[in-house]
Design a protein around this nucleic acid. Structure first.
Length: 627
RNA sequence: GCCGGCGUAGCUCAGAGGUAGAGCAACGGUUUCGUAAACCGUAGGCCGAGGGUUCGAAUCCCCCCGCCGGCUCCA
């Protein structure tokens, strides 16, 4: 049975009752009603934005003295920010949700209008956040948009469905703190989040995706696969790699060493400490002391406030130290580019609320490098670094990343040398274009010492993390007295490229775990193959097979427990071991092993020599196998 | 750092003022098996730390620490 809306448009029966399943026909009818030529994506935004209005409506019903912020659509639904007399509880959320569904069923129309600013001021006289928005709008126009449904009116530029019944299936998910206008110095509001999709199926699929994502969350897999751990006693943000996690990290280091050695990098080692005076001269103590661990003074009692020059600091980055290394001798332009690579752990005091598994830690190890070049060499060297990045990511089979070109913006933190910035920015941009890399430009995101190109990937929860970075430094070399002798005999200041390819091994490992869902390709897998003897009489040959494969440099073990073969296979699968080598009477007889691939495929009995060469080749070539 | 939620066995969780529980994992024994879970048994806990209320606290209160979600930040 179908009803009709007030203006005669055909409406479907209420599809929002919990448990009700939309038939495809009804869903289409709901979606099509009143849409005109609005496309699907826009319509979805409208549903989400409209749902936010209903959310604000019922929250004000429950808290008449509440103050409302803003309520935009987001990529999975919507949110609305509130200032309320008390924190919202999970019970409040279900109550709000219940009331929202009730209001939606009443099928209120959304009526948009444009009114004079002064009228809006009066209308929202008890809403300070709206007043602030009006202040802002008053610069552009003397009229503003408002949208009314039922008893609720919101300041709004538009973009709604026609009436509340057209709002798709949704669920309120959580409440979180959020600063007004994203400014940490402004009041913190309560943000209520909701998920909303065009159909119930898509909403369910969204939550199924979330669950699936949680299964491949590196924090969970790290524990299940015994890759890493944290200890409350050791401290927050200090990841501890267990033996299997350490193997993966060794493989990562081995890869980047190999790639960098081939490309003329020279490895150095500079330890973990440096004096405050160094970081003062480099500019870090002024710009970034809040992320540095506090000074370590020899005689803390005798120190005047702020006198950290003689204190030691844990290095938060290597750059100034590498510049001291560079200054150890006088360099000719003929030696450039000079590339110092270092894999030393750095320490950054990330605020407690920022810490997150391996992706945000307080002790991190970069594959860090500083390249000293002449200004003329910028483009070529950046191109070489980009090539290295591409090679690394294709080795890992990770194609899903994006680049950001960070440029200077307003504000005083940037080094004042317009000419140098222009040169550096155009060199970076040129190299990205030359490599045919897509990127977005971000103003105000540059480092204080120069522009940078960063590579971002998303984790399984959709959060973006910076991995690779290529930064041009226009200031530190001069501050720290770096020079080279040019071909005319003059001493000049080199440009320095700061770059990291993995970024940090810790973060990259976290991303990698999620990328492979813990099922690492053979070259990274902590255990590459496991021998599974069917009965005790097969133990000897199983151990022989394992020993021979280990002799070839492969990581192989034997499950010699007293479980049945099926249980051993199950355990091996759960460990996500790439290959299992089943050994019974037939295999002992023919000096072979039955090869089971992680994906369940049975390759049948293969002679030991053949297994060895197959696995060795996969290891050597760092193949993205098995699947 | 801020707002909210949460810390009970290695893991997942139950217990909500009155004797600390289950499943899986672990360990021991039996079993010797052909491609994702054999059977029996044993052990495992300062209920995150400290302080308070109470005759009595895993349970209520305070304060730390840690974790989770979000915000802010990220050289």
């Amino acid at each position: 049975m179908r009803g009709a809306s007030a203006d005669g448009r055909r409406m479907a029966d209420d599809p929002y009752d919990s448990g009700a399943v939309l038939e495809a026909e009804d869903a289409a009818a709901v979606a099509a009603a009143g849409r005109g030529d609005v496309d699907d994506a826009d319509w979805l935004q409208r549903m989400r934005h409209s749902a936010a209005h209903v959310l604000a409506q019922v929250v004000l019903q429950m808290f008449p003295e509440g103050k409302i912020g803003i309520g935009p659509p987001i990529d999975t639904g919507f949110y609305y920010d509130f200032d309320l007399p008390r924190p919202l509880t999970p019970e409040d959320l279900s109550e709000i949700q219940k009331r929202m569904r009730k209001e939606i069923r009443r099928n209120h129309r959304f009526v948009w209008d444009e009114i004079p600013l002064a009228e809006a001021r009066e209308r929202f006289d008890d809403q300070p956040f709206k007043q602030e928005l009006l202040d802002q709008f008053s610069a552009d126009s003397d009229h503003v948009g408002i949208c009314t449904h039922a008893e609720f009116t919101d300041l709004c530029r538009g973009g709604h469905v026609e009436s509340t019944k057209q709002i798709g299936p949704f669920r309120l998910t959580n409440v979180a703190g959020a600063y007004w206008r994203g400014d940490e110095k402004r009041p913190q509001l309560q943000r209520v989040y909701g998920a909303l999709f065009p159909t119930r199926e898509e909403l369910d699929a969204h939550f199924a995706r979330l669950e699936e994502a949680q299964r491949r969350d590196h924090r969970r897999l790290g524990r299940e696969l015994e890759l890493f751990a944290f200890s409350e006693l050791v401290g927050a943000g200090v990841p501890l790699l267990l033996p299997d996690g350490a193997i993966i990290r060794q493989e990562m280091e081995r890869l980047i060493r190999e790639l960098q050695d081939e490309r003329g990098y020279r490895e150095v080692w500079t330890g973990h400490l440096a004096r405050g005076e160094l970081f003062r001269r480099s500019g870090h103590l002024d710009n970034y002391s809040d992320v540095m661990f506090p000074a370590m003074h020899e005689h803390p009692d005798e120190v005047d406030a702020g006198d950290d020059g003689d204190a030691y600091f844990l290095k938060p980055m290597n750059c100034p130290v590498h510049m001291m290394l560079y200054n150890n001798s006088l360099h000719s332009y003929r030696e450039l580019p000079l590339r110092y690579a270092e894999y030393t752990t750095l320490y950054r005091y990330e605020k407690s609320g920022q810490l997150s598994g391996l992706t945000r830690v307080r002790s991190l190890t970069q594959d860090d490098c500083h390249i000293f070049i002449t200004p003329e060499q910028i483009s070529d060297e950046v191109a070489r670094v980009l090539e290295l990045v591409q090679t690394l990511f294709s080795t890992y089979g990770m194609p899903n990343f994006r680049y950001e070109l960070s440029l200077p913006g307003e504000g005083g933190k940037y080094v004042d040398d317009a000419e140098a910035w222009r040169t550096a920015v155009s060199a970076l941009r040129g190299a990205l274009d030359e490599a045919e890399i897509d990127y977005v430009e971000q103003e105000g995101e540059a480092a204080f010492y120069g522009p940078k190109a960063d590579l971002f990937v998303s984790d399984v929860m959709g959060r973006e993390w910076q991995l690779s970075t290529i930064q041009l430094d226009l200031i530190q070399p001069a501050r720290l007295g770096c020079v080279y002798v040019a071909d005319d005999g003059e001493r000049r200041t080199p440009v320095v490229i700061h770059r990291a390819i993995h970024g940090s091994f810790e973060r990259f490992l976290g991303i990698l775990i999620e990328h492979y869902a813990g099922a690492f390709p053979l070259w990274l897998a902590p255990t590459q193959a496991r021998c599974i003897p069917i009965a005790d009489r097969h133990l000897d040959w199983a151990h022989t097979v394992a020993a021979e494969l280990r002799q070839a440099g492969l990581r192989v073990d034997v499950d010699d427990g007293n479980e049945r073969m099926q249980a051993k296979i199950r355990n091996g699968q759960r460990r996500k071991i790439p290959y299992m080598l089943v050994i019974g009477d037939r295999e002992v007889e023919s000096q072979s092993a039955a090869v089971r691939v992680r994906n369940g495929e049975d390759l049948g009995a293969m002679p030991l020599a053949e297994i060895r060469s197959m696995l060795s080749e996969q290891y050597r070539s760092r193949a993205n196998q098995p699947s």
